[in-house]
Amino acid sequence: MKKTCFAVIFLLYCFASTAQHYDWYLNGQIIKGFILKHNEYVSHLANSHPSGIELSLQQKLNGKREWESLYNKPLVSYGLSYYNLQNPKLGHLVVGSAAIDLPLKRTENTALYFRIGTGLVFSTNPYDRETNNQNNMVTSTITYLLQTRLTYEIKLNEKISLTPNLNITHSSNGAQRAPNRGVNIVTANMGMSYKIQSQENQDIQDVIALDKTPYQVYLLLSGGRNTRTLQVREPLPFFNLLVYGQKYVNPKSDWGVGLEYFHSYSLKEQIRTSWFRINGVEEIQDFKRMGLLIGHELKFGKLGFITQLGLYIYDPSKLNMPVYQRYGLRYQFHENIMAQVALKTHAATAEQAEIGIGWRF
């Protein structure tokens, strides 16, 4: 369930606007690239050149909501893609995605877009302890997706555009099971878009305004299950409690600071199975942790893309790096109620995929 939440919130948000009139496009991509060697433990797999195809529906937002005009009327994409990883140990990937393409620059016949995307990934040949134990990249049949893309659109006529792009696709199970190295695919794609529907000519009135509250305080409770070592393979529960203060900067950005408590039974089990002796007495260290963090929220109306950087101020076990990061999506369902899905990492190593609910004071 936790592995689907990144995609679910984003998909619900995107489809909430489909009642309006938009320009709709059908986009196809031919995919070719390589697997990134992001650490030494995947060097035996990062030696192939994946290929694939992608088909997506795209809608151009029309400025009805204030943030749409603020971002120069971006594209929202719903895609399905196939990757042949050209390695029998890795198999094939089928990816369902939702993404927003933000225009960085537009002219009459060209445009440059930056994509933020997420979704779900189905793997045909994940890790298996008995039959496929060398695949330490893709551990679960269903994993989640993070994707960025830089697209240069060249308009050929009113209907057809070329869309070459550079793309980075990351698939991981968020430490649901070990090993959890993840797969990172860098590709150069060649694509083409065809306009299948044009919006009706109409003036946009009664623009929906953004929330510009100068200061906000959140109390967020999140949790899930994860595993940290091959010795403790069964996922165990964890929960976090965050008190977070946020300041409005501009219609696109908020900055904040927070204090966070971590309670992980997987870390507790890791400490228990690696206990040590002091003066001949077996002693188990405290598994609880606390951290201070700073964060940024990139806002798209009620939806926000969050990035946070934290420092442990209490971590007796010392089994982690002192610094951690978090990337995720936050949606404000109500004036006071919000939901969040996120990935907490130590550098390039994911620790846990989180789902949470919070209250805004």
Results as ranks from 00 to 15, higher is better:
41 Y>D: 11
176 Q>H: 14
245 G>C: 04
287 F>V: 02
317 S>N: 04
341 V>F: 07
10 F>Q: 06
331 Y>L: 07
123 S>R: 03
164 P>S: 04
284 I>H: 12
160 I>Q: 01
104 L>F: 00
184 N>W: 02
146 L>T: 10
270 Q>E: 15
214 P>F: 03
274 S>G: 13
126 P>F: 02
116 I>D: 03
340 Q>E: 15
88 P>E: 07
81 S>F: 00
75 L>W: 09
86 Q>H: 10
231 Q>M: 12
125 N>Q: 13
68 E>S: 02
35 I>V: 04
69 S>W: 07
214 P>W: 04
210 L>C: 00
316 P>R: 01
36 L>W: 14
6 F>L: 07
234 E>H: 14
94 V>D: 09
51 S>M: 13
9 I>A: 04
156 L>T: 05
358 G>R: 00
66 E>K: 04
133 N>H: 12
28 G>T: 00
262 F>L: 15
105 K>A: 14
297 E>L: 11
124 T>V: 03
73 K>Q: 15
89 K>T: 10
227 T>R: 04
197 Q>M: 15
183 V>K: 01
305 F>E: 00
151 T>S: 11
87 N>W: 03
145 L>I: 05
312 Y>F: 09
338 M>Y: 09
272 R>D: 09
293 L>M: 11
21 H>R: 14
257 V>Y: 12
267 L>Q: 09
83 Y>S: 01
311 L>N: 13
36 L>S: 12
31 I>R: 07
128 D>S: 09
286 D>Y: 01
296 H>Q: 10
249 V>M: 11
340 Q>D: 07
200 E>I: 14
77 S>I: 03
239 F>P: 02
197 Q>V: 13
140 S>N: 09
70 L>P: 07
253 S>W: 15
2 K>A: 15
305 F>T: 07
35 I>Q: 01
135 N>I: 02
72 N>W: 10
247 K>L: 12
322 P>R: 06
135 N>E: 01
125 N>D: 10
203 D>N: 14
166 L>C: 08
204 I>H: 04
347 A>M: 14
54 E>C: 08
2 K>H: 15
18 T>N: 13
198 S>E: 15
330 R>W: 07
14 C>N: 13
160 I>K: 05
33 G>D: 01
295 G>V: 02
212 K>T: 07
260 E>V: 08
260 E>M: 09
297 E>S: 12
305 F>S: 05
36 L>D: 12
226 N>M: 00
183 V>L: 08
205 Q>C: 10
337 I>E: 03
4 T>C: 14
122 F>V: 11
40 E>N: 13
345 T>K: 06
42 V>M: 02
206 D>H: 12
130 E>D: 14
324 Y>K: 02
178 A>F: 12
30 I>D: 10
107 T>W: 06
129 R>M: 13
316 P>A: 01
127 Y>I: 05
297 E>R: 13
244 Y>T: 05
78 Y>P: 03
84 N>D: 11
245 G>V: 08
158 E>Y: 09
46 A>S: 11
75 L>D: 04
66 E>L: 01
76 V>H: 09
191 G>Q: 00
247 K>S: 12
234 E>W: 11
131 T>N: 11
217 V>D: 11
283 E>R: 14
227 T>E: 04
50 P>Q: 07
110 T>K: 14
342 A>N: 01
134 Q>I: 02
275 W>S: 15
161 S>V: 05
314 Y>K: 04
27 N>R: 12
128 D>Y: 05
81 S>M: 06
